[in-house]
Structure formats: C-alpha cells, structure tokens
Amino acid sequence: MAVTDEAIEKIKEMIVSGTLRPGDQLPRESELAAVLGLSRNSLREAVRALSLIRVLDVRQGDGTYVTSLDPQLLLEALSFVVDFHRDDTVLEFLAVRRILEPAATALAAPRIAEQELDALTARLDALGGTPSVDELVACDLEFHRVIARSSGNTVLSSLLEGLSGPTTGARVRRGLAQRDAVGRTLHEHRAILAALRDRDGEAARSWATVHIASVERWLRSAL
C-alpha cells in the first residue's frame, strides 16, 4: 500500500470508529502525524485527497474539519467523474438509472406531498404541448429530482442526482433527433404523476421503467 493510501486509511479509520465525528476539527498536523505514525508530507497528501472527495474541509487560516458526511455531499464526486465518460459508457449509467429510478419512484408513492404533486403538474402545464428541448430537459431534471427526494432515502436520491450528468446529454440529443420524443416524455411524466396521486407504487415503478428505458433504447440504437 502506498504511503498516501495508508494515511487515507488511517484517517478513515478515525472517522469510522468515531474518534473523529462530523464537524470535528482535526488535531494539528504535527500532532496528528505523530499519533498516526506518518510523515507530515504523506498526511498532507491524504488530507488533500480527502478534501477533494468532500470528506474533509480545509479552511485556510482556521484548520481542517470533518464535513457533515452527508451522502449528497460525498456523492458529488460521482457526478464529476461520470461527466468524463463516453457514450458507450453512458449506456451503463442509464442501465443503473433504470434500476434505481423506478425503485425511488415506487418509494415516493406513499410519501410525496400533494403540494409537490401540484407543483410538478403546474410545471408540466406551463410547458404546453411543444416546449423546446432545453425547457423539457430542465423540467425533466427537476421532475425526477423532486420524486427521488420524496423517496425518503437520501443515499438513493444522491446516487440518482450523480447519475443525472451523463444521462442529461443523452436526453438532449434524443429530444433533438427523435421526432416524437417531446410528446412521449410529457405523456410518461403525466402517467407517473397519475400513479403517484393514486399512491400506486407498482404503477409508478412501471411507468418510471418505461420512461428511463425509452431513452436507453434510443441511445443504444443511435450509437
């Protein structure tokens, strides 16, 4: 194991064991290096790496702190990484989204508030029948974000948020290239909303699967 990797593991162990908790300030660099049996250089590299993935927060002139470790914060790195992937890999992200999104939609069925459903319906109504692709994709992102949050599972909603980056590009290209994409998307959104209003988790799951799979099928045929 590389020295920096060892340093990362030792800091992680302190957090997992509860020696360091969310919001805690790390001991001074010299003190922490001595406690962990590390050189100050390797400790510094480990802190830098952990700050990049939002485990640690380095505050200039103040010190280094453990972040809130909130799943959404930690999974932000995922959305950064997936933006670099090619179209063929985007198919794999869409396949993962096809597994997770219906599950989140089914979980949201008994939980999503009526005012959230009203707001999503109003947003769809405001689009009209012939929105631009940009307007439709912006609405689509918000539509799925609200439903995922309503699942009550912060890890699941954060994972889906991280997967939205590469799949957004696919949705835009589909909207531009496929003649009936806009109408089908609006129809599928309304079907999902109807199932959520009925508190029918299985119908919501089914329509979400159809919705995500249609983008995946188009991209697979377009490649």
Rank of each mutant, 00 (worst) to 15 (best):
M1C: 04
M1F: 07
A2C: 05
T4M: 09
D5W: 03
D5P: 00
E6S: 15
E6H: 13
E6N: 10
K10V: 11
I11E: 09
E13V: 07
G18A: 04
L20W: 02
L20H: 05
P22W: 02
P22S: 02
G23S: 07
D24E: 06
L26C: 02
P27I: 03
R28E: 14
R28K: 12
E29N: 02
E29I: 09
S30F: 13
S30G: 01
L36H: 07
S39Q: 09
S42N: 13
S42T: 14
S42C: 04
L43H: 06
E45P: 00
E45A: 13
A46Q: 03
A46L: 04
R48H: 12
I53G: 06
V55F: 10
D57P: 00
G61E: 03
D62L: 10
Y65M: 04
Y65T: 02
V66S: 08
T67N: 08
D70Y: 12
Q72T: 05
L74Q: 07
L75H: 04
L78C: 06
S79N: 06
F80T: 10
H85P: 00
D88T: 13
T89W: 14
T89C: 03
E92I: 12
F93D: 02
L94W: 01
V96W: 03
V96K: 02
A103R: 11
A103G: 04
L107E: 10
A109N: 06
A113G: 10
A113E: 15
Q115F: 04
E116P: 00
A122N: 03
L124M: 12
D125C: 01
L127R: 05
G128Q: 09
G128R: 10
G128K: 08
G128T: 01
G128W: 05
G129L: 03
V133T: 14
E135G: 06
D140F: 05
F143R: 08
H144I: 00
R145P: 00
V146G: 03
R149V: 00
S151G: 08
T154M: 04
V155Q: 03
V155S: 08
S158E: 09
L159E: 01
L160S: 11
L160E: 11
E161H: 11
P166R: 01
P166I: 08
T167P: 00
T167K: 02
V172A: 03
V172C: 00
R173K: 14
R173L: 13
Q178F: 08
D180F: 02
D180E: 15
D180L: 06
G183Y: 01
R184Y: 05
R184D: 08
T185E: 12
E188S: 14
H189R: 02
R190W: 11
I192Y: 04
L193D: 08
L196Y: 09
D198E: 15
G201L: 07
G201N: 03
A203F: 01
A208D: 06
H211E: 08
E216L: 12
E216M: 05
R217M: 07
